[in-house]
């Protein structure tokens, strides 16, 4: 089942990058996708039912805008800290408790945090994400968890869970 899904995804990817629908092209793409599935199929572990639910795609679109907005805000924040003559930084590593269950949700959240300027996710151990933060504004776990992860977490929960 997993293998068939991977095969279909790869064939779609092939048709997208070659962008022609001649018979030879489809045959060569099918052979290549078969080879790839045979070699790397065991590394493809995802829950496939979620692929077919359209509301997840809608929330993904919303998340894209939310993420862009947060990214722009964080950019200005970091730029302010760099340009300011006193350099108001207070770097440190904080431990953020996650409410997400699935592996893929945690991964996407960690990558989103890394891509936002000012925060970098260092490691993920069990349910806790270690984040390097440029300005540790509070020592209270509730407050900083909300500040770092909370803005993304609800949307990711809607997309992946």
């Amino acid at each position: 089942m997993r293998y068939v899904a991977l095969f279909i995804i790869l064939l779609l990817f092939w048709l997208l990058i070659t962008f022609s629908l001649t018979i030879e092209n489809v045959i060569v793409g099918a052979v290549a996708a078969l080879l790839t599935t045979a070699l790397f199929g065991k590394f493809f572990r995802h829950n496939l039912i979620k692929f077919l639910q359209p509301q997840r795609y809608f929330w993904a679109l919303v998340y894209l805008f939310v993420f862009t907005w947060e990214c722009v805000k964080a950019n200005f924040d970091v730029a302010y800290r760099v340009i300011h003559p006193a350099m108001p930084i207070k770097p440190g590593i904080v431990r953020v408790k996650l409410n997400l269950k699935t592996e893929i949700g945690k991964t996407i959240l960690a990558n989103s945090i890394t891509m936002t300027p000012g925060t970098i996710s260092v490691d993920l151990i069990d349910d806790e994400l270690y984040v390097h933060w440029i300005y540790v504004s509070s020592m209270d776990p509730e407050v900083y968890s909300q500040k770092i992860a909370g803005r993304f977490e609800n949307y990711i929960k809607k997309i992946f869970e």
Binding site: W14, A32, A33, L35, T36, F43, F44
Partner: peptide
Amino acid sequence: VSIIFMYGVY
């Protein structure tokens, strides 16, 4: 990983 391999084949 499978997409990178597929791109190499392309």
